[in-house]
Design a protein around this nucleic acid. Sequence first.
DNA 1: GTCTATATCTGGATAGAC
DNA 2: GTCTATCCAGATATAGAC
Lengths: 229, 229
Amino acid sequence: MKFETFKKMVNLSKKAISRELFLENRERIKIKKEGVAVKNLEKIFEAALKISNKKGFSAMSLRELSSEAGLSMGALYTYFSSKDELLDMLQAMGRAVAMRTLIEQISDLTGTQERLRHAIQAHLYLSEVMQPWFYFAYMETKNLNRQEHKKAIEAELFTEKVFSEIIEEGVAEGLFRSVDTALLAAMIKAMLQDWYLKRWKYRRRSVTVEEYATFITGFVEAYLLASGK
Amino acid sequence: MKFETFKKMVNLSKKAISRELFLENRERIKIKKEGVAVKNLEKIFEAALKISNKKGFSAMSLRELSSEAGLSMGALYTYFSSKDELLDMLQAMGRAVAMRTLIEQISDLTGTQERLRHAIQAHLYLSEVMQPWFYFAYMETKNLNRQEHKKAIEAELFTEKVFSEIIEEGVAEGLFRSVDTALLAAMIKAMLQDWYLKRWKYRRRSVTVEEYATFITGFVEAYLLASGK
DNA sequence: GTCTATATCTGGATAGAC
DNA sequence: GTCTATCCAGATATAGAC
């Protein structure tokens, strides 16, 4: 699948993401009209990621956020009741969208090798569509409260498990040679994360997300299909 | 080489690192007696990394640093003249120690495959000895001023180049098959970085740094030595 | 629903005693 | 060299007008 096809398929426009955010947090948001709320959340969300990814969430002042989002300080506080709550909202919302999309993408596929390729591709494409959020989530994990931090770790281990299970299946089938599946899955994760953590590098070198996906797939398969040793 | 042997060889005790820090910044530090300065810098350095790695440098208050380091606010300011300068000092110092050690380690080795293995191992072992600094440097890069930021990028690309040059050499010799060396080198970097960025994961799984080094070496060699495709 | 104005507190930084 | 006390800018958060 081409990246553009994927993008249309998952249909993760900024507005769609903001609507998710609104619905997920209906109880704590004071605004009642969905249209207004979604429009403003979209602005807050985008502005918060932009500033945080430049200087870190804790260094972002709410004045700055207010000016970047085009809303007053007072208005901001009708969408969340503290800066920490904003952090949790951003984190929880993005994670919910990402996890749901991933699960949708990786189910209903047959053939071990096909599934491995597709899982790698889906992870990469998704992190490309939601790049600012993925970068943010990675960099701010340590600033979350205990509960949210735990969920972030679980999400990392869950997506890793997607890979280790496919690999184990391939080993059981005799398709792949026997390897340390946990370590290999961790390495796949690390490589997938590099794509959104070091965008400057790959952009500078004009590497497309498709090329990157193809490279990783080839790299991993060479290891799994290697003859001896 | 075993990790413990490496550790003794490079002799990077905390005190040694602090002495470097003192010598590198002699002009901006007001304290004249080397003994006093090194002892306190050691405390400041360790405390700053500890707090920053927990909550981020910008969220660390100097009062907190002062209490963790066991020095008053006033005393802190005889070692640096602003919080930003402290950030730059930490960054510059660690980078200088790391780069020098790496260059020492990777020179004077013959045999392409041997050099590749050794480079991977040296990077990992070094990041293990200086783990708090490596984690800090990665997470705080975006908060550096333009000049320091540029140097951090250069250091990343320099170490990447170490790998791509060895690989290119191997390809020229006909030892390795022809691959995208830039991408492969970037992937090696990403995997090496995961070791110090996600220590919790590898500790939880009781993976030793030697095992990790062996795994990556095998992974990369399988790709470089793969037959067809 | 949104704004402006303001209360309150915490942070970085420094002066001056010892 | 180090400490305590203090200044003041800038932060989060809220009150009340519109």
